[in-house]
């Protein structure tokens, strides 16, 4: 099991490095040279090229190239980036020269807090919804839960944020709700199906025959059997939560990694864009690995034997 997880972790890491390489290539493929883009990101060059004389532009670009280490050829710079990335150095921001990792370290805690709380809320609400719907299977409460869940899946986070902010000033718990509601809907839907499937198994009937109440069969026996499904839902739900944090951090003015990405992308600050994007990729990958690990921990049948 550990070997399987280690293998998948390495694969995830390789994929992220490939993403970094692709991002790097995008930068090279963009029109104009990186040093010019860096100068623009730093505010040294206006975005309209006509307002600066060519001689001054050349000087500014050359100076920026010197300062940001962009003088070397593309190949050398890429190798430098890779070596640095492995050591934990993701370069320097083009806007303020600070290390990208410093920016990320500053912004990550807020995002992690939002995500963590969002996950807890999503699973709590989702589980309640799934149990309630499964208990009332076929009845009014079940139909109502289904309607609410599909509505939640279709509600744009931007509108949800606007609605919530109309009710009162932006507060962190409300941001968490905006992040979590799509995840809760997904967990309620898939959880309900998993619970009903488990409740149809012979062991559930046996429990009923032994005198267990319908509620106990669902919340203890069926839930236990469906636990791996809930664990794997972690991998499905986290990307949705991440997408919601993109909107929520902006709408609720949270100083997190999503806000960092948005600001850097607006300015064209490529090193920070790359660093923030890779961070989100790493979060998604971590969720996927955690889901696999959790599922394997819960169900010995899922533990991989080295092939």
């Amino acid at each position: 099991m550990i070997a399987g997880l280690a293998r998948r972790s390495l694969r995830a890491l390789a994929t992220l490095l490939a993403v970094g390489a692709l991002g790097w290539w995008c930068l090279e493929a963009a029109p104009g040279e990186p040093a010019e883009a860096a100068a623009r990101a730093a505010g040294l060059l206006p975005s309209d090229p006509g307002t600066v004389s060519p001689a001054i532009r050349r000087e500014i670009v050359a100076e920026t190239a010197r300062r940001q280490g962009l003088e070397r050829g593309a190949g050398a710079r890429f190798l430098g980036f890779l070596c640095g990335a492995v050591r934990g150095d993701l370069g320097r921001s083009w806007r303020d020269g600070q290390a990208v990792t410093a920016h990320l370290a500053r912004a990550l805690p807020a995002t992690l807090a939002l995500l963590g709380a969002g996950l807890v809320v999503a699973f709590a609400l989702g589980l309640l919804g799934a149990l309630g719907a499964a208990a009332a299977a076929g009845g009014v409460a079940d139909g109502l839960t289904r309607v609410v869940a599909v509505l939640a899946l279709s509600l744009p986070p931007a509108w949800a944020a606007v609605l919530v902010l109309r009710a009162g000033p932006g507060s962190w718990p409300l941001a968490v709700v905006c992040v979590a509601y799509v995840g809760a809907a997904l967990i309620a839907r898939h959880g309900r199906a998993a619970l009903l499937e488990a409740a149809a198994e012979p062991f559930a009937t046996a429990a009923r025959a032994r005198g267990a109440s319908h509620a106990r069969v669902l919340s203890v026996h069926a839930l236990g059997a469906a636990a791996t499904t809930f664990a794997t839902l972690l991998a499905v739900v986290v990307p949705y939560l991440l997408g919601a944090t993109l909107v929520a951090e902006r709408a609720f003015d949270v100083d997190g990694t999503a806000g960092l990405l948005l600001d850097a992308s607006a300015a064209g600050d490529a090193p920070v864009v790359l660093g923030a994007t890779l961070t989100f990729g790493a979060l998604a990958a971590a969720a996927s690995l955690a889901a696999d690990g959790l599922a394997a921990a819960l169900d010995p049948r899922l533990r991989s034997h080295d092939r």
Binding site: T15, A18, L242, A266, T277, G281
Partner: peptide, 18 residues
């Protein structure tokens, strides 16, 4: 694998950032 490593919205934003 590479495309799905980054959630979709981030892909669109980052591509425009670069």
């Amino acid at each position: 694998d590479v495309v799905s490593a980054i959630p979709a919205l981030f892909l669109v934003v980052a591509a425009q950032g670069l």
